[in-house]
Simulated scan of single mutants.
Amino acid sequence: MKKHDQDFMKRQNRLTVFEIIKHQQPISRAAIAKQTGMSPTTVSRIVGELTEEGYLLETEQVSAGLGRKSTLLAMVDAAVLSVGVELDRHQIKIGIVDIQGNVVAGDTYPRSADESAEVTLKRIGAEIDRLTKSNQIDCARLIGIGIGLPGIVDNDTGVVIFSVQLGWKNVRLAERLKEITGYDVAIDNELKVKALAEHMKGAAIGSNRTALLGFGNGVGSALIVDGEIYRGKTNSAGEIGHTTIDPNGMMCDCGKAGCLQTFININSLLSEANKIRPVRSIEELFEARRAGERWAVYLVERALMYMAITINNVVCMYNPDSVILSGELADKFPEIYEEVVELCFTRFVWEPLRGTFAIMRSELNEQGVVIGSGLMSQNCFFALE
């Protein structure tokens, strides 16, 4: 075996042991060896390294049957912190995330839709600095930054290939933000990191095949298969918002006509609403619907119908056991959940697939992308160490 292959296996073994302890703590060295098939010597070496570096602690001893007592291992939650960032058209969310995915400090900052990449990245750097200082965060424990954003992302090189919502193309985000902050930076599509968060500590725990759908400023999806995010060849799997529904339909921000998201996303809904009367926010549109204004009822119910159609199409393509509804529309207006579920099972879900999957709300809601981004950064750190 070549040296680089040996180094890769060592890194993978280290990450595997770390993840087992994180999710199954407290746990013994013997139990880890049994699960992984690694030798007790290898497990002890990795545990020793992680303990020496301050990531693990040994807890009380317990009796394992009639044999020797085993020392149990647990994580030191604050030993490692990372920065999770959600970058969207109109706002930036930043959170400091611990090993268990808890946000120990965070804030939200407005962003103008036409703000350049350089201005945005400098602002992120400045706000991270302010956030850590105001919350007395020990920066020696910060191991990196993770960013989730809408669009096509090369997660290996840290380049934003194309983001309609941000108006960015070929932005070397990870490289530039590292220059600004000094921290290693990992980036990915926002729904993929949110799916990671839901899988690790949210609605997708225990699921073998989960489809996460995002309805908000855009429309997209992410698929988790056996604990891994399905990416496709160019990490663009799941971009269902730009599937064509009506070639003679409304123009999408991407330059095509009749994309699925033009029937659902917030910008399109507000654009249609403003043909009737001035509507400044999605909240105003839903208020008009609750007041029984026919045009508002039509726009919202049409959007809900297309959400149900989207669920049917995704279920037909991927046959998941769970579907998670997420995004700004689902988070801000939880009442639409019941309506979408009813539409799915009374009108749109293909008969043979009814009863084969559950439709769930996101458990992490508006924190999902920040948590997932922070955990992504930690995964990169422990894989490379």
Rank of each mutant, 00 (worst) to 15 (best):
A291K: 15
P278R: 10
G258M: 10
I20N: 10
E301P: 00
G37F: 08
C139D: 11
Y55V: 05
A303I: 05
L260M: 14
G220L: 03
S116C: 08
Q12H: 12
L56Y: 15
L364M: 14
R14H: 04
G292P: 14
V83P: 03
S221P: 04
C254L: 05
G249F: 12
G327T: 01
P352D: 09
E339N: 07
Q91D: 11
I96P: 01
E239R: 04
E283K: 14
D331Q: 11
M200N: 10
G214R: 03
N274M: 09
R141L: 13
D253N: 15
A186W: 03
G202P: 06
R130G: 08
I46A: 01
I266K: 04
L131V: 07
M38D: 07
G238E: 05
L56T: 03
L15R: 12
G255C: 11
N319W: 08
P278L: 10
Q91A: 12
V160L: 05
I324M: 07
R89G: 03
F286C: 05
V160M: 05
I229A: 00
I224Q: 09
M38E: 11
K34V: 03
L131D: 01
R68D: 07
C252N: 08
S377P: 00
F333P: 00
G206H: 11
N274A: 09
K194N: 11
I96D: 02
Q136I: 07
I99F: 06
L87G: 01
G374E: 02
S322W: 03
R361P: 05
E363D: 13
N312M: 06
D7Q: 13
S373H: 04
F18Y: 15
E19Y: 10
I359Q: 01
N135F: 13
R277W: 08
Q165K: 11
G374R: 02
Y109T: 07
M376F: 06
Q25P: 06
D226Q: 13
S362I: 01
L269E: 01
V314H: 00
E58K: 12
L270G: 06
R289M: 15
Q261G: 07
A31E: 15
S70A: 12
A30W: 14
L329I: 15
P40S: 12
I309F: 06
E115I: 07
A140G: 08
Q136H: 11
R111C: 04
K133W: 08
K93E: 06
S28N: 08
A174D: 04
L81V: 09
A257N: 14
Q378Y: 13
S362P: 04
S207H: 05
N265D: 13
E115A: 10
I161G: 03
V193E: 02
D156M: 14
T356M: 11
L149G: 01
I124N: 01
I264K: 02
Y318I: 12
